[in-house]
C-alpha cells in the first residue's frame, strides 16, 4: 500500500509538473465553451437549451488531452519496466495511474464544468448536480481513457489513436450525464440517469485495470 501511495504521489507530480497538464485542459475546456456561442448563435434561449450537452461534450474532449502521455512517457523511457518489476501487480499500477489522472485532470475540470454550464445560460440551480456528475463521470473518463492509452502504446501518432478508440466509449457517460442535468433543469426525475452514470464509472474503475494490465504486458513483450 505504501509503495502505491508513493507511486500516486509521483504520478501527481508528473501530471502537475512542467507542461501544466491540468491548466492546459481547463484552458482547452474554456476555449471550446467559448466557441460554442459563436457556432450555435448567441440567442440566450438556444444556448440555454444546449448548455448541459455542450458542457459535457467539452468535458469529454478535455479529458482526452493528457491521456496520450499517461502510459506512453513511462513506456518510452523504460520506467514501465521498473513499475512492472515492483511490489504491486501491473493492474494496480494502472489503477493508481488512472486515479492520479482523475485527481490531476478530472477534479479541476469538474470544478470548471458548472461554471461553463452557467456561463452558457444554464440555471444556477444545476450547479451542484453538474459538479457531482462531472466528478463521477470524470472518473469513468479517466479509467476508460487509460484503457485507450494503454492499447495505443507504441503506436505512431498514438494521441489520435487514443481519441478514436476512446471517444465511442465515452458515449454512455455523455448521454447519462447530460441527460441527468437536462432532466433536473426540466423538473423531471433525474436519479435514474445519475445512477446509470455512477454505474458506468464504477464498472470502469473495477474492470478496466485488467484490460490495461494486459495491454501493458503486451506492449512490453
Amino acid at each position: 500500500m505504501k509503495s502505491l501511495w508513493t507511486l500516486y504521489r509521483r504520478e501527481l507530480d508528473l501530471a502537475w509538473g512542467r507542461g501544466g497538464g491540468p491548466l492546459l485542459a481547463c484552458a482547452f475546456y474554456a476555449c471550446v465553451a467559448t466557441l460554442l456561442p459563436l457556432a450555435a448563435g448567441p440567442s440566450p434561449e438556444r444556448l440555454a437549451a444546449v448548455a448541459p450537452g455542450s458542457a459535457w461534450l467539452a468535458l469529454a474532449l478535455a479529458s482526452l488531452l493528457s491521456l496520450e502521455r499517461l502510459f506512453e512517457r513511462d513506456y518510452e523511457d523504460g520506467a514501465l519496466d521498473l513499475l512492472t518489476l515492483g511490489p504491486a501487480p501491473i493492474e494496480a499500477v494502472a489503477f493508481v495511474k488512472c486515479l492520479a489522472q482523475w485527481t490531476a485532470n478530472g477534479l479541476p475540470l469538474a470544478v470548471f464544468a458548472p461554471l461553463a454550464a452557467v456561463a452558457l445560460g444554464a440555471p444556477v440551480e444545476v450547479v451542484p448536480l453538474t459538479l457531482a456528475c462531472a466528478l463521477i463521470g470524470g472518473l469513468g473518463f479517466a479509467f476508460v481513457g487509460g484503457t485507450g492509452a494503454a492499447l495505443a502504446l507504441g503506436a505512431r501518432r498514438g494521441g489520435v489513436l487514443v481519441a478514436v478508440v476512446v471517444l465511442p466509449l465515452f458515449a454512455p457517460p455523455v448521454i447519462f450525464g447530460a441527460g441527468t442535468i437536462e432532466a433536473f433543469a426540466a423538473g423531471l426525475n433525474w436519479t435514474p440517469g445519475f445512477a446509470f452514470l455512477a454505474a458506468y464509472s464504477l464498472a470502469a474503475v473495477a474492470l478496466t485495470p485488467l484490460a490495461m494490465g494486459a495491454a501493458v504486458r503486451n506492449a512490453l513483450s
Binding site: L7, R10, D77, L82
Partner: peptide
Amino acid sequence: SQGLHLLGHHDGLKPGRTAWEELRFQTLWA
C-alpha cells in the same frame, strides 16, 4: 517482482524531476 533489478539503455528517469526525487521513488518502489 521481488528479486531482480533490470537496468537497460532506458533508465526510466524523468527529465523534469530532480535526481533525488527519481532515486527516492525508484528505491522505494523496488
